[in-house]
């Protein structure tokens, strides 16, 4: 383990960042941080690590609820659109069936299905981005040069200063007590 490096003090600490060399190390460090009771913290990995949800004590993702709202909107929206356009605003009568009559419902199935899928996909993608609060191009962890490895072959744990349990010395000591290869404190200018 390297000695802990601190950038020259220029303000208040924002994040304590610990670097790990393997998926195994970061997983076990995450369990320690979870057990220490921290809430505003995160693991940063180049790929999702199996078992990390439990190691971090996360509850289930909420993306599915957004998707089901999108799906139902698409399904009903498609029906209402076709019924209004072909049955109310300008009735098109084919085979003695005005658009929107019960006999035309089978012909509505393909478009109802397609719009259900389309709006579900919007729900999945934009719902995921919303829950993750992305895009967000500024974040204290980006201040670290070493953090570039998080998208390559390095694993990180970050604990934010906004956490109620945050105490600079204790937090740094906690992370140093794991198998961290490097611990650094990222500071930001006083607001």
């Amino acid at each position: 383990m390297e000695a802990k490096a601190r950038t020259a003090p220029k303000g208040v600490p924002a994040v304590v960042l610990a670097e790990f060399e393997s998926a195994h190390d970061v997983l076990h460090a995450a369990e320690r941080v979870r057990d220490a009771g921290y809430k505003a913290w995160d693991a940063h990995t180049p790929f999702p690590i199996h078992g990390m949800d439990r190691a971090m004590g996360l509850t289930d993702s909420k993306v599915g609820w957004i998707v089901i709202c999108g799906a139902l909107t698409g399904l009903t929206g498609a029906f209402v659109m076709m019924h209004w356009m072909n049955g109310v605003d300008y009735p098109i009568i084919v085979g003695d069936k005005p658009g929107g009559a019960p006999g035309t419902i089978p012909s509505m199935v393909p478009i109802m299905f397609e719009l259900t899928v389309l709006l579900s996909a919007f729900g999945a993608v934009f719902g995921m981005l919303h829950l993750n609060r992305l895009p967000r191009h500024h974040h204290p962890v980006f201040e670290s040069e070493r953090f570039r490895g998080a998208s390559d072959d390095r694993f990180f744990i970050s604990i934010e200063a906004s956490d109620p349990k945050f105490d600079l010395d204790k937090t740094v000591a906690l992370l140093e007590g794991t198998h961290a290869a490097h611990v650094e404190v990222i500071e930001e200018e006083e607001p």
């Binding site: 940063h44 999702p48 996360l58 599915g64 992305l134 998208s151």
Partner: peptide, 25 residues
């Protein structure tokens, strides 16, 4: 990349969204 930082809290939603996209595709 929209500021992706490999956060596991993000990966969790990301993997769920990916699974749902695969399921509806």
């Amino acid at each position: 990349a929209m500021g992706w930082r490999g956060s596991h809290r993000h990966w969790q939603n990301y993997e769920r969204a990916y699974l749902i996209l695969a399921g509806i595709s």
